[in-house]
Structures are given as C-alpha cells and as structure tokens.
C-alpha cells in the first residue's frame, strides 16, 4: 500500500483498536447544532467526526487514537465529553 492508493479506512486499519461496547466520547448534538466552525471535523487525526447534510454531526469512537485533540480544539463548552476507554480497551500501537 503506497499512500497514493490507500483509502482513509485502510489507513485506520493499520492500527489495532480493541473496541468497547460503550463509547468513551459523548457529543452533545444540541450544543454542536449551531457550531459553524467544526474544529473537530478538521483536526481529529482519525476523522471520527463527520458532518451530515442536514447540518448535524455524527461521530464514531471505535477507531479513536485517544489523543484528546477533539476536546482541546472544541470551542463549545460541554459539546464533547471525553474520557479514556475502559482499561484494556481502545487503541493498541505496535510500531510507534
């Protein structure tokens, strides 16, 4: 896989994620609804925040690097609640 040909999904699949059934990121859609800047959408290295056509925002937590970028860049108080996943779950790096 050279970078010209790989999709973002293939890129994410190079890292291992032990997914917990419960999300460790919680987004309050009501707070996000009137946010026009959407810093999280640009900055999240795992591209977990996806704007929807109706102006909403969907998010995934499964392939999260647990870096904290989303809540750091978020300008809206209370929009993103973020904790570490339960012990033993989440990203497992190998060659980093």
């Amino acid at each position: 896989m050279t970078d010209r040909t790989i999709s973002f999904q293939e890129r994410m699949d190079t890292a291992e994620f032990r997914v917990h059934p419960q999300a460790h990121i919680v987004v309050d859609g009501a707070v996000c609804a009137d946010c026009s800047t959407r810093e999280c959408v640009t900055a999240c290295p795992a591209n977990l925040f996806i704007p929807t056509s109706d102006g909403g925002l969907v998010f995934n937590y499964e392939q999260c690097f647990e870096c904290g970028t989303c809540y750091m860049v978020c300008n809206r108080e209370g929009a993103i609640s973020w904790n570490y996943p339960e012990g033993g779950y989440g990203v497992v790096f190998r060659r980093t």
């Binding site: 994410m12 190079t14 890292a15 690097f65 870096c67 790096f93 060659r95 980093t96």
Partner: peptide, 8 residues
C-alpha cells in the same frame, strides 16, 4: 504503510 498514529 504499516501503522498510522497520532498523539498530542
């Protein structure tokens, strides 16, 4: 690409 990763 063997691994893609990120950290603050």
């Amino acid at each position: 690409l063997k691994e893609y990763s990120a950290h603050l």
